[in-house]
Amino acid sequence: MDDIFGIPAPLLFGQLLLGLINGAFYAMLSLGLAVIFGLLNIVNMAHGAQFMMGAFCAWMLLAWAGIGYWWALILSPIIIGFTGIVLEKLFISKLYKLDHLYGLLLTFGLALIIEGVFRNEFGSSGLPYRIPPELSGAWDLGFMFMPIYRGWVVVAALILCLATWLIIEKTRLGAYLRAATENAALVQAFGVNVPRMVTLTYGFGVALAAIGGVLAAPIYSVNPQMGSNLIIVVFAVVVIGGMGSILGSILTGFALGIVEGLTKVFWPEASATVIFVIMAIVLLARPAGLFGRA
């Protein structure tokens, strides 16, 4: 087959597909961050730790209770989302009147504590979690060998992102949420319990991170640091997409996954940096992000 920029075409197609798969994780995580920031004005630095907790929860369900992957996909977000609700009630709700910086520092501190506790309990080397038998194996696409599980991750991420976007943009509940961010007092005057809605929104954002963690568990080593490596990139994705823009974070997540994938072919050493270079350029040209409203 022909070469494209000196790279064999099959290899390039393969890398595009892989970029899309990584983009699925970026999209899922940045979506949760965008929802939380958009509605709570909190920069949730604990998101990576909550992603990690989701993966650990799946591992605990399997190792301690014999509960498999599919139930974990439902139970883990519920359990971890609930811990998010507790955090919001105890700590985060006290900060809404203060500057963004306080929320950022609080959640960053929480992330360090959570990761430290998990490292003490489970060690640093990681725990094994098997791919569910229904999704193991691979398709031979001709130009590459495509693991079925990775395909499933892309499908699951797309469904989740789309559903979240529909709920927030197209339903009555979503309309309340959006209205509450514009003018909470007015929405409350119409009889909507805004504090409860905000609490549940945080829980929902955390649950999204936990689902990401469950989806990641069979692919990556389940270890306490698994979220902290991802979260910085995901923040860059959110900034590029425009803080708080739901659709922006989804599209940017997938797009940057692909850009990163291509960089890994042409200049692997720069693959960790490319997203931040793009972030710098976007901030210079459009400070509100690609999809943000200035």
Binding site: P8, P10, L11, L230, V265, P268, E269, A270
Partner: peptide, 18 residues
């Protein structure tokens, strides 16, 4: 690959395979 900022190695694995 950049250390320690890399979590996904699939792109490199595909290059190795090729």
């Amino acid at each position: 690959y950049p250390f320690p900022a890399t979590t996904d190695f699939s792109a490199f694995l595909l290059q190795a395979q090729a």
